[in-house]
Every structure is written in C-alpha cells, then in structure tokens.
Write a protein that binds this DNA or RNA. Structure first.
Lengths: 209, 209
DNA sequence: ATTATTGGAGAGTGTTACTCTCCAATGTCA
DNA sequence: TGACATTGGAGAGTAACACTCTCCAATAAT
C-alpha cells in the first residue's frame, strides 16, 4: 500500500500523513525505491491511534508522541512498567500546564489531598498530588466549593472505575501497558459524556420528584 | 478598584484583562470618567472564573463565552432551566468537534448507546448520544475494545457521580444552575486525576498480589 | 507642573496543526 | 516508448487561538 492507499484506508489527507511521517508520529514505510514506500496494516492502526488520541482524547501531537514513545519502548522492570507508562501518560497530559505558578498549591490544600490519598491507600506521586491540588484551588477560586463529602464521593467512584480498568487487562503483560494507557486516555472523555447523561436524568428526577 | 487593582487581585496581566473586556468575557467596570472605570469583587470573581474554566477545565474562550452567556441569561422555564444550561454546556464543550464526519456514527454503535441509555433510564439527547457513539468508534478504531461489561461499569460509576453532583445543590434554585454547570466543568478534570491515582494503586495491587 | 496611569483600539507575536507548493524520480498505461 | 500521474521529501504558507505590545489623548497623583 502506498501513501494514497493509507490515506484512503484512514480518511486522513495525504498531506497530513506526510506531516505525521515527518514528525515521527508514524514510522516510515518500507522503501521500495527512492520515491516509493510500502505501508501496511500496522501503519493504518498507528494513524488511527494518532487520530483517536488527538480528536477524541484531546491530546496535542507532542503529547501523542510522548505516549507512543513510552508504549514503543517499554521500560524493562516488570513492576515499574505500568507505573512508568502511567507517569509518561500523566506527564504528557499535563504538558502546557503551568508548573511553579505564582499561586502554587498551598500547604492547606496539599494537606487535604494527602489526607484523601492516605485514606484511600493511593500513591502520593507529587505530580498527581500537585495537579489535584491545583484543580481544587481553581474550583475554589471560581467560587465552586468542593466539600470533603463530595470529594470522597468522587474518589469512591474513581476507585470503582479504576477497578474496572484493571479488570479489562487479560492476556500478555506486554499488552497490559498498552491496554491501560490507551484505554484510560480514550475512555476519559467517555466517562465525562456518561456523567452528562446521568446528570440530566438526575436533574429531571429532582425537578419532578 | 481600577484595572491595575483587578490585575493585582487576580494575578492576570493588565493586557490580558483588556483583552477579556474587549471580548466581552468580563463586563465593563463602572465608568467614573472617560479614562477611568471602577471594578469590584464581581469582576474579580468573573476573572477567576474565566481562568479556572480555561486553565483547569480546558475550555476555549469561545466556549467560556457561551457558558457564561447561558448562566447570565437563564431561560425562564423552571423545568427547562437546568436542561437548557446543560445543553449549552454540552454544546460549548463540543465546539471544535467534527459534526457530520465522513465516519459518522453507524447504526450499530448508536444502537449500543441507545440500549445503554434505555437501561439506565437516561435521556437520549442526540448531541450526547452522538458524542458517546463517536467516542466508542474512536476507541474501537484505535484498537481499544470497550466491552459491554466495562461500559456498564463506567455507566454505574457515572450514575453515582451524578447523584453526588445533584446532592451538592442546596439553596436557591437560581444558584442550582450555576452550581451544577460550573461544578461539573471544574470537577471533570478532578475526576480524571482521581482515576489516575486510583489506577496506580490498583496496578500495584495487581502486580504484587 | 510634571509624571504616571487609564481605557480603548489596532497591530504584532508565538504556538499548534495542518496544508500547499515545488521538485526530480518513479510508476502506469497506451 | 512516450505521455501523464503519483510518489517521497522538504520548505513555505495558512488559519485559529490566546494573548501581548504599541500607541493615544485624557485623566490622576504628587
């Protein structure tokens, strides 16, 4: 399959595919001559993955590159593998976020986050803790109070989602990484949409009942 | 308070505030002369809200404008009020999403979504149904299968989150709209972060146990 | 009286994700 | 064999976005 075939198979314009090739988001095809290369199903899958990650998960191309790099070149330690990919994922998502802001997370908010984390037995990865603290601070600054009870309700729901996430991983451990990372990135927006749907019913019930 | 005071109170540069004023994201201050205006706490709150919505919730300024417009000018019907704001929220979030794509949601995927919606007693707002269908299609195209069981687990978690969301609404119904819309937008990223934290523990347990 | 700051409007900037133009080399079909 | 389309590759151009800068005459502060 040549580049026009790849374009036809994925619905992505040839010019865009050339751009992705240049940026290293899609590996080069097997060169059959100086002006010809062959693309196969792995290229089709890669292109579709890039599109899903940008269009559906809302990642920037730079973030996509980082995630793909983490998946293509997995760290060897069996225990650290998932964690490392997870870290890459978290870091990639946070690109373009402000680090070391003037309004950095103060100790009160951080304490609140650490308390929750300890309660749930979660990890205290500073990247995640800071992000959560920042999000709580932003909500507060916008005049939306996040009560402890509400935060715990969200945390309980997150625990259930995470349990479901991990239970989807069946098969070779080599695939686990890919499944969890991609699955999470692609189902984040799905979860948000489901929340909207559920809210509309809940608000109808509240209005009618 | 003049514009430099507003800048000091919010940490947003004067040039950016002028830009927000021009774009109508922040209402003009009370003019005290031809080259002077007075800003008060409502302006501070508005600026902080705009920042939270863009930086934390990731909305574009155009989306922020739509959300603020829906909040500032609430539709009168008491039952439709929350629904209308919700619709504005959903539409605002979806700006920049591709409508009427070539790979539009096919009937099989839509059927799956409608089945889930019926099961849960959720609304079948075509905007949300199409979005969910599109997200399922994207995940599938990227090689990430979303099983019925997994989807239902996410739906159950979404239902619990929505219940918590609605339970936070206490007080005047005029504020309910604001609380739910802003609360949801600002806690979507929070939920995502919580999911990451929960996943890391779950994966540790899976690796060790 | 002098100096700084203001509101306002226009133009300029940096980033992102393409999209277009050009090229000689190559493939395809008559 | 020759006409014509397509290819890979590289550079430049584009559109949207969110600022940021420059300028101005009119105040305000000292």
């Amino acid at each position: 399959m040549r580049i026009s075939g790849l374009a036809a198979a994925t619905g992505v314009p040839v010019a865009t595919l050339k751009y992705y090739l240049r940026e290293g988001l899609v590996p080069p095809g097997a060169a059959t001559s100086r002006t010809q290369a062959d693309y196969d199903d792995t290229h089709v899958a890669r292109v579709r993955l890039v599109r899903a990650l940008t269009e559906s998960a809302g990642l920037s191309l730079a973030a996509v590159r980082d995630v793909l790099a983490a998946l293509d070149d997995p760290p060897m330690s069996r225990h650290g593998q998932l964690g490392a990919a997870h870290h890459a994922l978290v870091a990639a998502e946070g690109e373009g976020m402000s680090h070391e802001e003037p309004g950095a997370v103060d100790d009160e908010v951080r304490g609140r986050v650490l308390e929750l984390v300890a309660e749930r037995g979660w990890c205290d990865d500073p990247l995640l803790v800071d992000r959560l603290g920042e999000q709580l601070r932003a909500a507060d600054a916008a005049g939306v109070a996040v009560s402890d009870g509400y935060l715990r309700a969200l945390a309980a729901a997150a625990d259930r989602v995470a349990a479901a996430d991990l239970s989807t991983v069946r098969g070779e451990p080599a695939d686990a990484l890919r499944q969890v990372v991609l699955g999470t990135l692609l189902t984040d927006p799905l979860l948000v949409t489901l929340r909207r749907m559920a809210q509309e019913r809940a608000s109808r019930e509240a209005a009618e009942g």
